[in-house]
């Protein structure tokens, strides 16, 4: 739960490509081994870092605490829940004089 397949697949494919596929197509040369190691480690490190960040937020145990001002600005800027805007239009117009629903 909490996971969405699409970002997981996309990101895993991207970093697997860097760390798994690219090392196979590195042109032959004196530095091939080094380049392969570089690519593999880059893929592993970056994927792991993203994964941890993704998984850590997947099932949040706490929610962000927001200031009243932040709540109002967020509601306006991100248009997160139109419902609120209808309910508290008077507050919003007070808070942001130029605001038009």
């Amino acid at each position: 739960m909490g996971a969405s397949a699409i970002p997981f697949i996309i990101f895993t494919v991207i970093w697997a490509g860097v760390g798994g596929f690219l090392p196979m197509v590195v042109p032959k040369g004196p530095n091939r081994g080094i380049i392969q190691v570089i690519l593999i480690l880059t893929g592993v490190c970056c994927w792991l870092f993203w994964l941890c960040c993704y998984v850590a937020q997947m099932n949040p145990l706490i929610g962000p605490k927001l200031d009243r001002n932040t709540v109002l600005v967020v509601a306006k800027q991100w248009g997160i829940e139109i419902l609120i805007v209808f309910h508290f239009q008077s507050d919003l117009t007070k808070a942001f004089p130029g605001y038009k629903p």
């Binding site: 739960m1 909490g2 996971a3 969405s4 699409i6 970002p7 990101f11 993203w50 960040c53 993704y54 998984v55 937020q57 997947m58 949040p60 145990l61 706490i62 929610g63 962000p64 605490k65 927001l66 200031d67 009243r68 932040t70 709540v71 967020v74």
Partner: peptide
Amino acid sequence: VFELDARADQNYLGTSYPIGMDPAWQLA
């Protein structure tokens, strides 16, 4: 101060921000 409820049917949409830290946390 409002703490957003982390429950999936409340303030949390159910899936995490696809890449990296949710911008909501920067404001929290």
